[in-house]
Design a protein around this nucleic acid. Sequence first.
DNA 1: GCAATAGTGTCTATCAGACAGTATTCG
DNA 2: CGAATACTGTCTGATAGACACTATTGC
Lengths: 228, 228
Amino acid sequence: MPHTAAVETEGRPIVTVDVALFTLLPEEGLAIVLGTRDRDPFAGRPALFGGFLRPGSDGSATDAAHRLLAEKAGLADVFVEQLMTFSGPDRDPRGWSVSIAYYALVPFGRLAEARPGLAVWPVGRMPPLAFDHDRIAAAALARLGGKASYSTLPAFLLPKTFTLPELKAVYEAVLGTALNDSAFRRKVMEMRILEEVPEKRGATAGVRRPAQLWRLAADRLVEFDRTV
Amino acid sequence: MPHTAAVETEGRPIVTVDVALFTLLPEEGLAIVLGTRDRDPFAGRPALFGGFLRPGSDGSATDAAHRLLAEKAGLADVFVEQLMTFSGPDRDPRGWSVSIAYYALVPFGRLAEARPGLAVWPVGRMPPLAFDHDRIAAAALARLGGKASYSTLPAFLLPKTFTLPELKAVYEAVLGTALNDSAFRRKVMEMRILEEVPEKRGATAGVRRPAQLWRLAADRLVEFDRTV
DNA sequence: GCAATAGTGTCTATCAGACAGTATTCG
DNA sequence: CGAATACTGTCTGATAGACACTATTGC
C-alpha cells in the first residue's frame, strides 16, 4: 500500500505562481511590466504574470515561473528569483490561496520580442493591480532595492554587454540614489565582477567619447561582501 | 490504481509548512531543535516541525508556522520569519509538494517549557533529516548567517534582557567569526537599538564584574544600514 | 580647438580594528 | 589586593566621497 493513502486530499489551498517583471526604461527608469487578466476574477485588470502551479508538468515552482513568463509575456531565458510566498483566505476570491511570488528582470531591448499588449509602468505610478498583486509588487521592489547595493542584481536589467556609465545608471535607478563616479568604478573593478569586452560603444548621437564595453564575469547573480 | 496518480491529476499539490527552529547552546553555540516523525514517510527520523497547511483554520502560512511550533514543539510566541518555498515532485514520497519554509529562534532557557523529547544538535553535526529538510535547514542557516550582520536577528536567541558580552557572543556564534569588542560596543550604541535596563547581572559563579543589562528597543527585527 | 562624455588621481573625512588602559566586582 | 571580566579611550589603517584633472571622440 502506497504512503499516499494518508495524504489529505480535501482542503488543499489553491496554489499559484506570480511573477513581478521589471525593466529599465531609457528615460523613466525602473518600470514594471504587466499583463491583463483575461477572465474573472479581476477580468481586464492589470496583473502580474501568474497562473496555477501545474504539478505533473511543472518540475518546480521556479519552472512554473519561467513557463508563465513564456506563456503570458512571451519571454524566455529571463533572470528569475524567488521573492516570498503570500497566503490567506482573502487574497483570491476563489478561495484560500497560496501564491509563490517571484521577481524577474529583463533588459528593455528584449521587450521587442515580448508578446504585444503588455503594459509598462514606471514603478512610481503603477495602476491598481488584480488580487493582492500591489502588495507583491511592493515587496519585490523593496527586495530589489535592498539587494541591489550588495549584488550584481541591477546588471540583469542591462543587455549582455554594457558600459560602466550604463551600469552606474542602473544601480542609481534601482537604489534611487546618486552614486559617486570614481568610487563606483574603483569598487566594481576591485570586486572583479566584470570582464572587458574587446570593443567600445561608439558615439551614438551626440558628441562624446566612446566607452569601454564590459560583461558580467559570472552568468549568475553574485553577492558582494561590501556595497557599491 | 495508486493514489499518487489521483493526487497529481487532481491538480493541486500537497502544501506543507516546515519550521527550522534554532537555539543557542551555552557551550556549543548555535544548534537546531528537531522533532521526530511519528508516522510514515520517514517515521522515527528527526525532522523540522512541519505539517499540512490547514485552510479553514490557518489564517496564513505564518499562522500555520506558529501553530506547528505550538503543537509539535510546545512553544508559543517564538520569533518566526519566512525563509523560502521549496517545491517539486520528488521532495515528498506522497506526491508533488510545496513546502513553505520558516526559520524560528528561541532562547535556550525557553526550551525548559518545550515539549519533552525534542532533539538539540549543534549545527555543525546535524543528523540526516526526513524529506529534504537537510536542504531547508542549510538554507535557513545560510540566511541566518547572512542576515545576522545587518540586523538584530541574533538577539532573538537571547532572553529579553541580556548583557553586551552576551550579545556579542551570539553575533559571533551566528556569524561564525570573532568580532572586535570596542567596535561592537561602539556600533551597537550608535545604532540605538538597545534600551538600558536599570539593573545589572550579578556575578554568577566565578569572579567578575557584573555587566549592565539591556533589551531591544524595538520588539521586532530591525535591519541596519551598516554592519556590526 | 570646443563641447561633451569617459575615465584617473589624489585629498580628506569617516569608520572599523587593535590594543592599552581603567573600572568594578569577588574572594 | 589579586584575579577576572566589563568597559573606555585613542591610535592607526582602510575605505568611501569629493572633486580636480586628463583622455578621447565628433564636429
